[in-house]
Design a protein around this nucleic acid. Structure first.
Lengths: 223, 223
DNA sequence: ACAAAAGTGTTCTCGATACACCCATGC
DNA sequence: GCATGGGTGTATCGAGAACACTTTTGT
């Protein structure tokens, strides 16, 4: 076939998506098992080739939906990986994105190019295709860093949530326990949460107030 | 000729470099006047097509040298621009880098693809080719942000410098005056500068101590 | 009554800010 | 001696860290 010809070599272009969620108080990432070569049967990040008329972010969202059925995540460009030999077939540039979603909504379904889809805790990752290990590591660094100076964490929360749940998310990503009183003071002085008025009871103890983000949509920079 | 053929469309891949320096207490950026179409005669960021066997960062450094003669700058990946219609010829993805250099070393020379090379103060930019205006704006935002939580600014300083000069650089990028005593206290408590022992005299007044970065090479994150 | 998480205030420390004067030099 | 930028210290304020008990609920 080979119908697309150029005067000088062109690389192929893909996007890859590192979608994080919190499952069982663990930071987890979504992987697909590759159906085709190379790295057939290997786990990899969802992603794929950019269509001629779509922009990069559109591609990331489309591939995520096609391969896993997941939509409506928070998405942000991470870094572009372009070492000449990162793919054995031909030169492929990957614009990596990272994404966040509350696990409540997420029931991934294996899609077109993916034989299987599943969540993996970050400390129990399988062997990964290509340089996807590097992408995940960078994405995790970025997530941890942004926790301190932005409100990204809300991308991991459901519509409504308790302060205890929010604190667990922060603790999970930072890998350390936080003081309850200081955490609540800090979050509430940001003045971006609103009480819903409702409460939620999950055990044999006092019910917790439910909050939601007061002005959803935007990730704020703080400090 | 069209010797490079693929089964499905491939975009072209370029890097563009936003190289900043400080000239006359103004933040300035390096532009080239384009020799060929499109946007012939227009000012643009230095940059160009990625060779088949070089990685992205190598390409950025090579293009910068070829087009302007400049080497040895601090370079960092900024963002990848990939809107389908950002170039009228064909689909071209640009991995944008930003770079910093002290102006002392820099005497740009028009190179291969550039008819002319010059510095422009950021508040006096000419009309720019492609989406280079957006790239510059993003680069400037990033530079300003990193000033607060890293030591990027040293990329704009010569080998040795006075605290007064360093303060001028911070003031220029932030666009506001800083208190001399607080600035010096802050910088010195970072503990990354070393006195050279020498001093420099530039006017009819007391000579200033010269400092250098104690452990050069790395950009540190602070706080 | 007890277990288990929700909720709440005060003290301390340290970094950021505000602010004014003397010093070394050339003319 | 005066103009010019170099160099220094102290008081105040606010955010972050450390820290322990009461409340509500189900069993």
């Amino acid at each position: 076939m080979a119908k697309f010809c150029y005067d000088y070599p062109h690389p192929a272009l893909t996007t890859d998506i590192a979608l994080f969620t919190i499952r069982d108080e663990q930071l987890a990432i979504l992987l697909i098992r590759r159906g085709g070569e190379p790295f057939q049967g290997c786990w990899a990040l969802p992603g794929g080739f950019v269509d001629p008329d779509e922009c990069l972010e559109e591609c990331a969202l489309r591939e995520l939906e096609e391969e896993t059925g997941i939509t409506g995540v928070y998405l942000e460009q991470l870094y572009t990986f372009g070492k000449p030999d990162r793919d054995p077939r031909e030169r492929i540039i990957s614009v990596a994105y990272y994404a966040l979603a509350p696990c409540e909504v997420l029931t991934p379904v294996a899609g077109s190019d993916a034989a299987e889809v599943d969540w993996f805790n970050l400390d129990e990752l399988p062997a990964l295709a290509f340089d996807h290990q590097d992408i995940i590591q960078l994405a995790q660094q970025r997530l941890r860093a942004k926790l301190d100076y932005s409100t990204v964490a809300f991308g991991l929360m459901a519509e409504t949530f308790t302060l205890g749940e929010l604190q667990k998310v922060y603790e999970t990503i930072r890998g350390e326990a936080l003081d309850k009183r200081n955490f609540r003071k800090h979050i509430l002085t940001l003045d971006i949460l609103a009480e819903t008025g409702a409460t939620r009871r999950v055990g044999n103890h006092r019910p917790a107030k439910l909050y939601r983000v007061a002005h959803p949509g935007a990730v704020h920079y703080i400090r």
